[in-house]
Amino acid sequence: MRIIKARDYDEVSRKAANIIFSVMTEKPDCVLGLATGSSPVGIYKELVRRYEEGDLDFSKVTTVNLDEYKGLDREDPQSYAYYMRENLFSHVNIRSEKTFLPDGREADSQKACEAYNQILRQAGRQDIQLLGIGHDGHIGFNEPADHFPKETHCVDLAESTIEANARFFESREQVPTQAYTMGIQNIMAAKQILMVANGKGKAKILKEAFQGPITPQIPASILQLHPNVILVADEEALSEMESC
């Protein structure tokens, strides 16, 4: 694993965007695995800025997102489809038919998951997969469990995840309790994985994930087995990791 230290969130975002920029420059028709939440917002702003300056072209890019809430329409402001349009897709020249997320509108979980697995197979391996990390070590919506889920599946969100996501909703009661998410196998298929983290609150889990045992109780720990992982994090987030 390669660790890149940054001063703060803004520098984390710039350095992570540099890595994605390099992938897109080397392979204009790359497959980008994308994430949502607060961590990637700065990255997407930086990529939009570079597009506006004429340095990036999204016209041949395919994107596959990690997850989507079950039960939310794509036009719902809290859906990840809406998030992606607001933060990236509507600001660049990407083709909408080449942007993919699980279909939160599909009530049949098996149907939704099988459909997204087929999309992932057709898209091919992600050239780079962007990840954040939850305080409990979840990646995507792969929560702590007794096994590592392989492919796209429907997950009951942990109480800690619901609490963490409540800030994006008007009330806690509005937070969906289920989501469709790529499985660990889907994530590990990426040629390169880019994780971003910032703040003291992520220090403990980063140490456990990357310097502790590999266990499905800390889903991110599986990344220790991936041959090409880059962690971009600020000094506070890295403060408990040895040799950082």
Score class of each variant (00 low, 15 high):
M1W: 03
M1Y: 07
I3E: 07
I3K: 07
I4P: 03
D8V: 09
D8Q: 07
Y9V: 12
E11P: 10
E11D: 15
I20G: 03
M24S: 11
E26T: 11
D29A: 14
L32T: 00
A35I: 03
G37I: 08
S39W: 04
S39N: 13
G42K: 05
I43T: 04
I43C: 06
Y44I: 12
K45P: 04
R50K: 14
Y51P: 04
E53Y: 05
L56N: 02
D57L: 09
T62G: 02
D67L: 02
G71H: 09
D76V: 09
D76F: 06
P77F: 06
S79Q: 11
A81S: 14
Y82L: 03
R85C: 12
V92F: 04
V92M: 03
K98L: 13
T99K: 00
T99G: 01
L101I: 03
D103W: 00
A107R: 11
S109K: 07
E114K: 13
A115M: 04
Q118N: 13
Q118F: 06
Q118L: 13
Q118C: 09
I119Q: 05
L120A: 07
Q122R: 13
G124H: 08
Q126E: 13
I133M: 00
H135S: 12
G137P: 01
I139K: 01
A145C: 11
D146A: 10
D146L: 10
F148T: 07
F148S: 09
D156N: 12
E159D: 15
E159L: 13
S160H: 09
A164N: 04
P176H: 01
P176L: 00
Q178A: 10
Q178H: 15
Q178Y: 13
I184N: 02
Q185T: 12
A190R: 02
A190D: 07
I193C: 06
V196R: 00
A197P: 02
N198K: 10
K202Q: 08
K204H: 08
L206S: 04
K207E: 15
F210K: 00
I214P: 00
A220P: 08
A220E: 05
L223I: 12
L225C: 11
P227G: 06
N228Y: 09
V229S: 07
I230C: 03
V232K: 00
E236T: 10
L238Q: 09
E242N: 13
E242D: 14
C244S: 13
